[in-house]
Amino acid sequence: MHRFTCTERVQFSDTDMAGIVHFSNFFRYMERVEHAFFRSLGFSIVDPAHAGEERVGWPRVHASCDYMAPLRFEEEFECELLVEEVRTKVIRYIIRFWKGDSELAAEGRITAACVRKDPATGKMKAVEIPQRFRDKIEPAPHEMLRRPDRK
């Protein structure tokens, strides 16, 4: 799968004194849609141990967000996750936030590394993405990755 969407609603606690979503909350939204994407594939972001493999984790090594239009209290919006790239040890996502009238409110990017805890040192070490993930996650077509003006 290369695309996942879900609908959210702006909560009062997400907003600033002007009644619009505080910029930092877009990072929470990005994490929520990523977790929902994993669940839709039958995974959890908290990976249980699998036969013959230790668990993996997905720490962020990059996160950014560009803002185009405000989201306001009680407004519904669509979160669209696109898999931008799957490398040997890293997955890159583009996450778009669409207002009800198909206006792009924001566009974020996350890069998550696949890691395992080194039993000897206890430190996280980047590892190859296990095949069970690679079998279900693929990059979106290039035309979907270009930032559109409208849906």
Rank of each mutant, 00 (worst) to 15 (best):
I94G: 10
P148R: 13
E84T: 11
D66T: 11
H2I: 03
R9P: 00
G52A: 07
E76L: 15
C114N: 02
R87D: 04
I20Q: 09
K123P: 03
W58V: 02
G19K: 01
F133Q: 10
E31N: 13
G122S: 02
V90S: 13
S24M: 07
G52D: 01
P119V: 06
S64R: 12
R55L: 05
R3T: 06
A105W: 09
L81K: 01
M68Q: 11
R72G: 06
V56A: 07
T121E: 08
D149W: 08
I91S: 06
M144Y: 04
A106T: 08
I95P: 08
E75N: 11
G57F: 11
E128W: 00
S13W: 06
A69E: 06
R116S: 13
V10I: 07
C6D: 07
I137E: 02
K99C: 06
L41Q: 07
R116V: 03
L145Q: 07
R96G: 02
R146D: 05
D135A: 14
R146Q: 11
I137F: 09
W58T: 09
D149Y: 06
R39F: 04
K89C: 06
R134G: 04
G122K: 11
R3E: 02
C114D: 05
K136N: 05
P148T: 06
C6G: 03
G100Q: 13
H62K: 14
F38R: 08
F37L: 08
V61N: 04
H2G: 03
K136Q: 13
V61W: 00
S64D: 09
P48M: 02
L104I: 09
S40Y: 04
G52W: 00
R150D: 00
P130G: 10
D66I: 05
I110S: 12
H22V: 04
V10Q: 03
D16T: 06
P119K: 01
T7P: 03
P130W: 04
H22L: 01
A18G: 07
Y67F: 15
P48F: 02
M30N: 03
F37Q: 03
S13N: 07
S13R: 13
C6H: 05
R60V: 11
L81V: 01
H22I: 03
V10Y: 00
R116D: 00
A18Q: 10
C79M: 15
I129V: 08
R60A: 13
R132D: 03
